[in-house]
């Protein structure tokens, strides 16, 4: 597959990048590592006039902890560097596991965190060549009026499958965005929308600068169920982060990925554990409760109900692993 023609900009500074983004609008695509964008261009799923390469911008680099203990990860950081970063591996094991679950080693050597956070949703009916897509009616994502997966859907139900996202939401991460107008911060959980096309709230001219993880000593785990261990999108993923002890948990976030158009927080399951503590019986009850939070699930490749059963098993696995995991050291 060949790439279409486009212009290429490599801004020398963040200010220049934001100025270009601000004036060019949607005719510009932001290029990080290119491992997803260039495929989408080859498939003619996006047709930008120009690419804006932001990977080298120093403002998007670095992993650091500030005086208050907040972890800051630059959006331009490579996934390989993050998956093996000693700080992430020691203090945020679930995040390191999630980042390591993205693509293949080759892909992670190129891909950036910012790219993963902004990964477009995917669907077996759209992420195909132009010719393949042309053999059937266009769907919501390709300017049609139907969803081939959920026939009754009134919007695009393509799947959100960026593995780093559930792990970061479980850690209550925030996102730092900047445009030429200024900067804003929002919880990562509020960044995504339940729509396969307009999948996030990034405003025109805005760029993802960094992810901020608040200080907290949490146990964390990420698991992914996929056809192969390497280089596959998940059928379902689950991230969990737990504060406090097994007997008296103080906080718990369980976040499922690859099951819908946005990551799903499993409130019911977490509530059961927070009330009863981590025991064999409460883990079973929490696993059974997961389906109540999932709502409409996009079953691609899988029979109806499969993903809900899968998530039940993942909840059990994550909670058991959290129960066994030692609390990361204070520093």
């Amino acid at each position: 597959m060949q790439l279409p023609l486009f212009e290429y900009h490599r801004p020398a500074s963040l200010d220049e990048a934001l100025a270009t983004l601000g004036t060019a609008g949607s005719s510009l695509a932001v290029l990080g590592g290119g491992t997803d964008l260039l495929i989408n261009l080859k498939l003619r799923l996006e047709r930008p006039r120009a690419l804006l390469s932001v990977r080298e911008l120093p403002e998007l680099a670095g992993v650091s902890v500030d005086a208050a203990g907040t972890l800051r990860i630059g959006a331009g950081e490579r996934l390989t560097d993050l998956a093996t970063h000693p700080l992430l591996v020691a203090r945020y094991p679930g995040l390191a596991q999630a980042i390591r679950a993205v693509g293949s080693r080759h892909v992670r050597n190129m891909a950036t965190l910012g790219g993963n956070l902004c990964l477009p949703t995917r669907c077996w009916y759209t992420n195909q060549s132009e010719g393949w897509r042309g053999s059937q009616l266009p769907c919501w994502k390709t300017e049609g009026q139907v969803c081939h997966v959920i026939k009754t859907a009134s919007n695009c139900r393509a799947i959100h499958s960026a593995d780093s996202v559930p792990a970061l939401i479980a850690l209550d991460a925030r996102l730092l965005l900047r445009s030429s107008q200024g900067e804003r911060e929002l919880p990562l959980a509020d960044f995504y929308r339940d729509d396969g096309i307009e999948n996030n709230v990034l405003a025109p001219g805005e760029l993802v600068i960094a992810v901020l993880v608040p200080p907290a000593r949490l146990r964390s785990v990420f698991v992914k169920a996929a056809a192969r261990t390497g280089l596959d999108y998940g059928y379902a993923t689950l991230a969990g982060a737990l504060g406090g002890s097994n007997r008296a948990p103080k906080s718990l976030l369980l976040v499922a990925g690859s099951v819908g158009t946005m990551p799903m927080v499993l409130h019911q399951s977490a509530r059961i554990i927070l009330a009863d503590g981590l025991t064999e019986a409460s883990i079973e009850a929490a696993a059974d409760a997961a389906r109540d939070d999932l709502g409409e699930v996009t079953n691609l490749f899988t029979p109806p109900g499969y993903k809900k059963r899968l998530v039940r098993g993942l909840v059990r696995r994550v909670l058991n692993e959290l129960r066994r995991q030692k609390l990361p050291a204070a520093d």
Binding site: G34, I39, T80, H106, N109, M110
Partner: peptide, 13 residues
């Protein structure tokens, strides 16, 4: 020294 997919790298970079 890292493995890179040359099909997903722009030569201009």
């Amino acid at each position: 020294g890292r493995a890179v997919l040359s099909c997903l790298a722009l030569a201009i970079e």
